[in-house]
Amino acid sequence: MRPLVLASASPRRAELLRQMGLSFTVLPVDVDETPRPDEPAVTYVERLAREKANVGFARAEHPDCLVIGSDTSVVLAGAILGKPRTIADAAAMLAGLSGQTHKVMTAVALAGGHGCFARLVVTDVRFRVLSDVEIDAYCQTGEPMDKAGAYGIQGKGGIFVDGLWGSYSAVVGLPLDATAALLTEAGEPVWMHWNQSGDEPL
């Protein structure tokens, strides 16, 4: 496989790539995540994924590498919920999500010598009604502070979810099926590299 690079510092995305049986290097990148005026959420999420992948490809040491960029946004009634800046901000986000169905939009982009291609995955997630006490307790754990929408479905925040329609891995931060499809389209189907990544044959 051509060298694979993950343009993200997210341990969750790295774990999902390892789950796919892939070997890769991590190259965190910084891009301006400010939404543009009147920018729809679907456009915003895909734009950031592409920007991360392209910046990573420009910085990568190997000219023949493939670079994965991804972005996840929680969208409630059309409003993008980013990462909370304070505990009070996190509590307000969680109170807004309580008892509601929201959308988790995750885009994944693959950049290389072939250009940059992206896919968007939208998942509906429903929260049960949350009490003020448990919102406060969750915020005090610190878990919400680096996560879009102020919760991590793969962590303690998973107890708030009572319904999900779509891709669980996309809610965590990287849609496995869409990522595999992009790699296949780039001539690097994931399954061809499973045993090369150190997996023992069944």
Rank of each mutant, 00 (worst) to 15 (best):
residue 116 C to H: 06
residue 51 E to P: 01
residue 22 L to I: 03
residue 170 A to R: 06
residue 115 G to K: 13
residue 192 M to W: 14
residue 199 D to P: 00
residue 174 L to T: 05
residue 3 P to Y: 07
residue 12 R to Y: 03
residue 53 A to S: 00
residue 195 N to H: 10
residue 27 L to P: 11
residue 61 E to S: 15
residue 92 A to W: 09
residue 25 T to K: 10
residue 70 S to Q: 04
residue 108 V to Y: 05
residue 201 P to Q: 06
residue 148 A to C: 14
residue 45 V to S: 09
residue 194 W to V: 09
residue 192 M to R: 14
residue 24 F to T: 10
residue 143 E to G: 12
residue 169 S to Q: 02
residue 143 E to V: 04
residue 4 L to T: 08
residue 75 V to S: 10
residue 125 V to H: 05
residue 187 G to V: 10
residue 137 A to Q: 13
residue 76 L to M: 09
residue 183 L to A: 06
residue 17 L to K: 01
residue 173 G to S: 01
residue 192 M to C: 13
residue 20 M to Q: 13
residue 159 I to F: 11
residue 184 T to K: 14
residue 55 V to Y: 00
residue 106 T to H: 12
residue 55 V to H: 04
residue 161 V to P: 00
residue 180 A to D: 02
residue 152 G to K: 03
residue 8 S to C: 11
residue 178 A to R: 02
residue 40 P to C: 03
residue 199 D to L: 09
residue 199 D to H: 13
residue 151 Y to I: 05
residue 118 A to M: 11
residue 131 S to C: 02
residue 145 M to V: 03
residue 12 R to K: 07
residue 19 Q to A: 14
residue 123 T to M: 06
residue 106 T to N: 09
residue 45 V to P: 04
residue 134 E to W: 07
residue 12 R to H: 08
residue 73 S to T: 11
residue 65 C to V: 08
residue 15 E to A: 15
